[in-house]
């Protein structure tokens, strides 16, 4: 067999196989993604627009939406700062323990969200390490907003850093060094050189971080205490409505999260494209 013919065989699978694989992929995408997403919206608007509107503006739903926005509003800026600092440290410096730091950043990806929540109960709960001290000083962390923020920050920690590290590594530090040599201060260098170079990657990380903050269920469920109107985020509120046989309202509120997911997907596509441009 000649080399060319072998190459041809390697490249071209029989038509039935190619079509079959494409068909299978399309079928699975339809079954597992399109159909459930459609089901959410169909259920949500099952009883009409007015019922949907009532469900998402009802008092407990409103407080859940506000709480989710508050938590996301605190979590995302924190993780932007953490992520920038971590990526900067790892991409620009060689030091002992660099790989350890890289691994540590990834921990939240590997840990089940329920465990992430339990960690905070073990540390800040009434029977936890800091529990008695916090109790004496009347500071409530678990089963209150601070605990929900902590759990969310933990779970979403890697998103910004993980996005920036490869980007900053591939770009190298030449331009930054040039800026310093030309007399820029550190802040000027960051603002005029580093930030413009990484902005699309940073935004990509922010989008992922925002989506996960709004949608996180497991870790938040453990530390929330489920007090309606006070410590229920949007996903927890969906669960409560579902458990109260309020299926239409549950799917109405879930449809908000689905919209977030779809918007995230679109933004992700745009930003992926922009990041690739920045990398070249």
């Amino acid at each position: 067999m000649s080399a060319t013919s072998r190459r041809r065989i390697l490249r071209t699978e029989p038509t039935w196989l190619r079509r079959g694989l494409i068909g299978l992929a399309l079928l699975l995408t339809f079954l597992f993604i399109v159909l459930p997403l459609a089901a959410v919206f169909i259920q949500a608007f099952d009883k009409g627009w007015a019922v949907w509107q009532a469900a998402v503006t009802e008092e407990n739903a409103r407080s859940a939406i506000l709480l989710s926005l508050l938590v996301t509003g605190i979590t995302v800026p924190l993780n932007v700062v953490f992520g920038l600092a971590a990526a900067w440290t790892i991409a620009r410096f060689q030091f002992k323990g660099r790989n350890v730091l890289l691994t540590l950043i990834d921990i939240p990806f590997g840990v089940s969200p329920v465990v992430s929540g339990l960690i905070f109960v073990l540390v800040f709960g009434a029977q936890g390490w800091l529990g008695p001290w916090l109790g004496d000083h009347d500071i409530q962390i678990i089963f209150a907003v601070p605990g929900i923020v902590l759990a969310t920050v933990f779970v979403t920690f890697p998103f910004v850093a993980r996005e920036l590290i490869p980007l900053m590594q591939s770009q190298g530090s030449d331009e930054e060094e040039a800026a310093i040599v030309l007399g820029a201060t550190a802040w000027q260098m960051f603002r005029r050189v580093t930030l413009p170079n990484i902005k699309w990657g940073l935004l990509y990380g922010v989008v992922l971080c925002t989506a996960r903050s709004l949608g996180e269920f497991g870790a938040v469920s453990v530390v929330s205490g489920h007090i309606r109107g006070l410590t229920n985020t949007i996903p927890l509120h969906v669960e409560i409505l579902y458990n109260e046989y309020n299926y239409t309202a549950a799917f109405a509120v879930a449809s908000l999260l689905s919209v977030v997911a779809v918007v995230t997907l679109l933004l992700k596509k745009v930003l992926e494209w922009k990041t690739r441009e920045a990398r070249v």
């Binding site: 109960v121 800040f124 709960g125 009434a126 029977q127 936890g128 529990g131 109790g135 409530q140 678990i142 089963f143 205490g225 489920h226 007090i227 309606r228 109107g229 006070l230 409560i240 458990n243």
Partner: peptide, 20 residues
């Protein structure tokens, strides 16, 4: 009156852990 609901054992555990 604010309400929190869940499995009885799980709720008990939450109060032990500091649910107010």
């Amino acid at each position: 009156v604010n309400q929190s609901h869940g499995g009885s054992g799980a709720q008990s555990r939450s109060v032990i852990d500091g649910l107010q």
